[in-house]
Amino acid sequence: MRLLLALLLALLPVAAQAQDGLPPAPYAYRQLDDPGLEQQARDLMDTLRCLTCQSQSIADSDAPMAGDMRHQVRTRLAAGETPEEVRGWLIARYGDYISYRPAPGATTWPLFAIPVLLLVVAVLVIARRLRGRGR
């Protein structure tokens, strides 16, 4: 089961990397000096999708483009933007696909409605199964 994941994660970025002449962007592999800001950056990067690897966040990828996006996130946060502004800026460019955190909306409501339904059904089932039995 892991085989596919392995190939997915490893092959693509490396294939691209092998041909790419430039060193990574300054903030691709460098943390922000302010630990609070770096923590915010880290939390945000964990929830942004690496577009060239398809199944990983930009915080977990060696792909050059993931590095460039980390650079983009860190420099924007350092310039005073909030994490949600950066997320919004990226969604405006790539659509909801870039964010691993679906926001409740016209296209995603079942993702939130169905768990609520599950919760209601779960409570009902438990209540029905357990009420007044065994006497």
């Binding site: 962007a25 483009m65 460039d68 983009q72 990226l90 460019r93 790539y94």
Partner: peptide
């Protein structure tokens, strides 16, 4: 565009 900044600003992914 050494750090893909314009590319990201354009919403281009490759």
């Amino acid at each position: 565009d050494p750090y893909s900044q314009l590319q990201i600003a354009l919403g281009s992914s490759g």
